[in-house]
Write a protein that binds this DNA or RNA. Structure first.
Lengths: 348, 348
DNA sequence: AGCATATATTGACACGTTTCAAACCCCCCT
DNA sequence: AGGGGGGTTTGAAACGTGTCAATATATGCT
């Protein structure tokens, strides 16, 4: 009624300028390089901003400047605690730099990964942290050609020197788990794997076999591989039959699982048959998700520095964005075996 | 060397138009209202798009149209499985509609929530699904005034009729847990709570007390409240002392926990003292996160339809965005008690 | 053939911001 | 008095797209 503009257009930089008796360029300077504008006018402009409740329009902003303040983070599965811990690391590091993180979820589908990468290109994201769904780098290289650099996470194998990468030494993790079981006297181990198309699974298995070999055992005879479709608890639970196949005599003495979800599922499956760990079977997981310490018995597992992984990835990305003479780097963390209650010495 | 434009400007709608021998407006039409353009020219334009590897610039796009194709989802904690399940629901529903979801994390800090909301305003997000950190609606109302509508999740109490909301009936959940324990013969129950400033905790407690009252028990005598700083496993484990305080005689017969993380922590704490559930103590959780079914014994818990919650919230948001005569709606789901191994009849 | 109607395409402008060369002001120095 | 030189401020020109009234082309009808 009283106010004349019912269709209240959002207030822009020009309105602020008018209200402060100043040119639009000056307002922009106050926003972006405050040091260049005299204190008195800066205060005047800031007051106008407050009084008009002005909020920046990032579309206009990035249209003109060609860049954005947000980085993408592409994960395989938002519900997997491993990924969310990594995401927290990425986010903390980015926030400190004033960058916003948009979390995208490929759900392990190449199709959705493709869509997400395209979205990042359309939005002219400043950069991205990516956990690719497979080792096909074509889409990733396309994204880089579009001007969006990225850092590879948990997948050192995809690119040679085309980008930075951060990963954990899966071979060493496999060896650590293997040595632990061998020291406990286990000479027959099943490897409960996810899809062997995943490099992580293959390398962890290779580590296990290497540990066997260094102890004079024949990997081919001592290690049995059980492949699953996915790396989740459901698969772990279902595969209990196959793990136990052959009767108590030929039963493996221990199981090394490709990740904790599989291990937890397996433990549940054992419980459902009246079997216990480590009494009937020693079990080792991988990742050290929070719940690994909560179940009873605690899950012996190979810990990855999840949070640090995320931080490091973001740090490399920031270096690529800010440092003129940035050189690609491959960071590799060491895993750590955490011994809990689910493994014990071989008896009988 | 051979190519003349080393500074390769990204290809825009104009380049496509030129390459297809057509006006920019037509290209725009092909992109946005393909039905309005003749098939032959459409094909020509699409070919040009492919040949030039054109990718839309969403800055220009949304600068002109004043709107975006992305919606925000603000959660309290990315690492909490309850939230990630909800996020998956939101995401699935949004993706079907061609909207991108940016996941923002307030980490339960009002400050970070404020930043996130401002970001949504600056980016002119189409809308948002929000789990507010407290019941102060000021910032939310500001966001709505800026033209970004939102749906409230898991917090029916914050707004009256100012927005849609989706939640689960916490009072009913408390009653269900209470009745279950009473039926098992437990007449002394501790409520292991998070911060009582959270409405969810208070209402679940109220439900428990109501169940007591309807059975002729005096809630004040039968229910003891143990408040924790946070809703995580660490707090749950630490509070085992307080739960057991008073020795075996006065020990509560059962514990109802405000969420599963607390319950899982408590179970671990019990195990650490050589006590078991349900042998020494019946335990009920809340949420039914995935691991609740994996631990041994399985955790009896009040399940919330997490995924559906997310989908429903997004659906309401879409209705608000698309339907001209949208009316705000308050959706309330019913929780469901899942009985597993951690509760048993009172003995002795 | 001539006209009305439907269908396709065009072209210029506006969206809100950043950028940058140019203009301005004020003070100090010669 | 005249210049020179900081530090400040200005104004206009992009950035890439969507919109819409206007124009061009095709179609159907008398």
């Amino acid at each position: 009624m009283s106010s004349s503009d019912d269709a209240k257009r959002p207030v822009g930089i020009n309105d602020v300028a008018a209200h402060a008796g100043v040119s639009p360029g000056t307002v922009s300077n106050v926003l972006n390089r405050p040091e260049r504008v005299a204190e008195s006018t800066r205060e005047r402009v800031e007051r106008a901003i407050r009084e008009l409740d002005y909020v920046r329009n990032s579309s206009g902003r990035s249209l003109r400047s060609g860049r954005t303040d947000s980085v993408g983070m592409l994960v395989l599965d938002v519900t997997n605690p491993f990924f969310t811990q990594v995401a927290r690391g990425v986010e903390d590091e980015a926030t400190e730099e004033g960058l916003a993180v948009v979390l995208l979820n490929s759900a392990e589908q190449a199709q959705r990964q493709r869509q997400s990468l395209r979205l990042l290109a359309e939005q002219r994201a400043a950069g991205a942290v990516v956990m690719p769904v497979d080792s096909d780098a074509a889409d990733l290289l396309w994204l880089r050609k579009q001007g969006v650099p990225w850092v590879l996470l948990d997948r050192g194998d995809v690119t040679e020197d085309l980008a930075c990468s951060v990963s954990v030494d899966n071979h060493a993790g496999g060896i650590a788990a293997g040595r632990h079981l061998i020291n406990l006297g286990h000479e027959q181990v099943s490897f409960l794997s996810g899809p062997l198309s995943m490099e992580q699974c293959r390398t962890r298995l290779a580590g296990l076999r290497a540990a066997m070999a260094e102890s004079g055992l024949d990997p081919d005879a001592a290690v049995r591989v059980i492949e699953n479709e996915q790396l989740n608890a459901e698969c772990g639970e279902k595969s209990v039959e196959e793990v136990l196949a052959g009767g108590p005599r030929r039963r493996p003495q221990a199981v090394f699982c490709a990740n904790d979800q599989l291990a937890l599922g397996l433990l549940k499956g054992l419980g459902g048959r009246g079997l216990t760990s480590p009494g009937d079977l020693s079990v080792v997981g991988y990742d050290d998700v929070d719940v690994a310490a909560l179940v009873h018995p605690g899950l012996t597992t190979v810990a990855q520095p999840k949070y640090e992984l995320g931080r490091a990835a973001m740090r490399l990305l920031l270096s690529e964005l800010n440092d003129a003479e940035h050189r690609h780097e491959r960071l590799r963390f060491a895993p750590e075996l955490i011994v809990r209650g689910s493994t014990a010495a071989y008896r009988e």
